[in-house]
């Protein structure tokens, strides 16, 4: 077992980062270069995202739910949130979102977030 102190430090730092949610959450066309997944896993994850998540997190921006693209959401956090649905978000069981689809989803969200954000003069 590691010292709880280290976990706590990670917790505080990550929470502070997440709470900020800095910068625009917009990605891809038409404001930035189109996001076209090259990796087949990312492409699969994109389809899963549009079937399961987009309607509440449109393109990873805010909508019914909060924006996802503008904060450093580690994969394990995305998985935990999808499986447990903390807060008002629904939980996704294995039936609705099999493990391989969730893996692909996490890969997609990471690639999308890392893609260039648009430069907007406002």
């Amino acid at each position: 077992m590691k010292k709880p102190g280290i976990s706590f430090a990670i917790l505080v730092v990550t929470a502070a980062l997440l709470a900020g949610g800095c910068g625009t959450a917009r990605r891809g066309a038409p404001l930035a270069p189109a996001f076209v997944p090259a990796d087949p896993v990312v492409a699969r994850g994109q389809q899963v995202f549009y079937a399961q998540c987009h309607h509440c997190h449109p393109h990873g921006e805010a909508g019914l739910g909060p924006a996802l693209n503008n904060k450093p959401l580690p994969g394990f956090l995305v998985k935990f949130q999808a499986r447990h649905g903390l807060g008002t978000m629904p939980a996704f069981s294995q039936d609705r979102l099999p493990a391989d689809e969730l893996d692909a989803l996490v890969a997609y969200l990471a690639a999308l977030r890392a893609s260039p954000a648009p430069e907007i003069a406002d």
């Binding site: 077992m1 590691k2 010292k3 709880p4 280290i6 976990s7 706590f8 990670i10 917790l11 990550t14 929470a15 997440l18 709470a19 949610g21 805010a62 739910g65 909060p66 904060k71 959401l73 394990f76 956090l77 935990f80 949130q81 447990h84 903390l86 807060g87 008002t88 978000m89």
Partner: peptide
């Protein structure tokens, strides 16, 4: 690695902080 025993609480706190909590935020339509 995070301490296993703290994991659920850690994650819950992280996400709650991050989301700013749906129920507490005003509508921004």
């Amino acid at each position: 690695m995070l301490d296993r025993s703290l994991l659920p609480a850690t994650l819950a706190t992280l996400l709650a902080t991050a989301a700013g909590c749906y129920s507490l935020r005003p509508s921004a339509g």
